[in-house]
């Protein structure tokens, strides 16, 4: 069937609400409004206000309430409108969700799922556009997911709800209208492994989320130049599936990491470090990174485009590593 990323997310939520009566959705405007990005449209009518709960604008209270409800035996899905707003709930996410199990000597589990929008590309400027998933991937106790395809939008939620620990799902804002074919019986997917989205032999391009499409476009351009790029979608940002991208680099001997986060102290730095730690002797060129410019995201279209990783920049980085090595 033809569907969109938004509809696939909605179907995943609907499916979870049907499968398990402990599941409920809460967040700002998830009910009567239908979700800031329309993900939960129609669910209030179908499941009622106890299970599709509109909250006041109190990120810390409703994220913390999700943590408490999860601890007490329910399976909440908490929606935060955008990653920038999640900073208002950072105390609860770090000091409670990620920490309670350890601090209690294993007694308290937090089987909570938090979904939020991340990323730029829609001219929403500096308080609605950042990519902070790399920060969250720094935190032990969390699992971080970044669905970049229709299959993952449809399939990551259920295994996330089965996870006994907190899971954060980052939905890239530019993907909601992504349309395509999804199998009628599409369902839960694996959330432990990275995926090779395009096999190749000359260079490994490691990415995730909103940059996947850009990397695939770049790979297509490079194919015309006889450069065969393998594109890896990390999918799970914590714990990182090193084995998949390191194995790829052992075959291609070159790597480019593409990350919409800022470069300094980023997830791309972590991926690059793991490649050099585990496959240094296999590299024919230094690892290259393509990241967002180190600037708060500007509004003007041409400036926003210039701040973000783009296919041309990815192509240039690949050319550099391919020509730079032996």
């Amino acid at each position: 069937m033809t569907t969109t990323y938004r509809e696939a997310l909605r179907e995943a939520i609907r499916d979870a609400l049907r499968r398990d009566e402990r599941v409920f959705l809460m967040g700002e405007d998830v009910g009567a409004y239908g979700g800031c990005f329309g993900v939960s449209l129609g669910l209030l009518e179908e499941f009622g206000p106890d299970r599709i709960r509109d909250t006041p604008l109190s990120e810390s209270a409703f994220v913390g309430a999700g943590i408490g409800a999860a601890t007490a035996g329910l399976r909440p899905i908490v929606e935060i409108m955008t990653v920038n707003f999640s900073l208002l709930a950072l105390d609860q996410i770090l000091n409670n969700a990620a920490t309670l199990r350890h601090m209690s000597g294993g007694q308290v589990g937090v089987p909570l799922v938090i979904r939020m929008t991340t990323g730029a590309g829609r001219q929403l400027a500096a308080q609605h556009s950042h990519s902070l998933e790399g920060w969250f991937a720094h935190i032990p106790g969390l699992r971080i997911l970044a669905p970049a395809t229709l299959e993952d939008a449809r399939g990551m939620l259920w295994p996330a709800l089965l996870d006994p620990d907190p899971v954060l799902i980052f939905e890239h804002g530019s993907l909601y209208n992504l349309a395509g074919e999804l199998a009628d019986d599409a369902g839960p997917v694996d959330i432990d492994h990275a995926a090779i989205r395009r096999p190749g032999a000359d260079v490994t391009v490691v990415t995730y989320g909103g940059c996947l499409g850009k990397c695939l476009d770049a790979a297509e351009q490079l194919a015309a130049e006889d450069i065969s790029a393998e594109v890896i979608d990390l999918r799970t940002l914590r714990p990182l599936d090193d084995a998949t991208f390191v194995e790829s680099v052992r075959r291609t001997h070159r790597a480019v990491v593409v990350d919409e986060g800022w470069r300094s102290g980023s997830l791309s730095a972590e991926v690059s470090a793991r490649i050099t730690e585990q496959a240094f002797e296999e590299l024919d060129a230094p690892v290259e990174r393509v990241c967002s410019a180190e600037v708060p995201m500007p509004y003007a279209k041409h400036l926003e485009d210039a701040a973000l990783p783009q296919p041309d920049g990815i192509v240039a980085a690949v050319r550099k590593v391919v020509s730079g090595g032996g």
């Binding site: 994220v63 913390g64 309430a65 943590i67 408490g68 601890t71 007490a72 609860q92 000091n95």
Partner: peptide, 20 residues
């Protein structure tokens, strides 16, 4: 459900336990 050492940090947790 714990001593919480972030002042105010336990209130959302308690609210959620009560919600459940």
């Amino acid at each position: 459900y714990g001593g919480n050492a972030i002042v105010g940090g336990g209130l959302p947790l308690a609210t959620g336990i009560a919600l459940a």
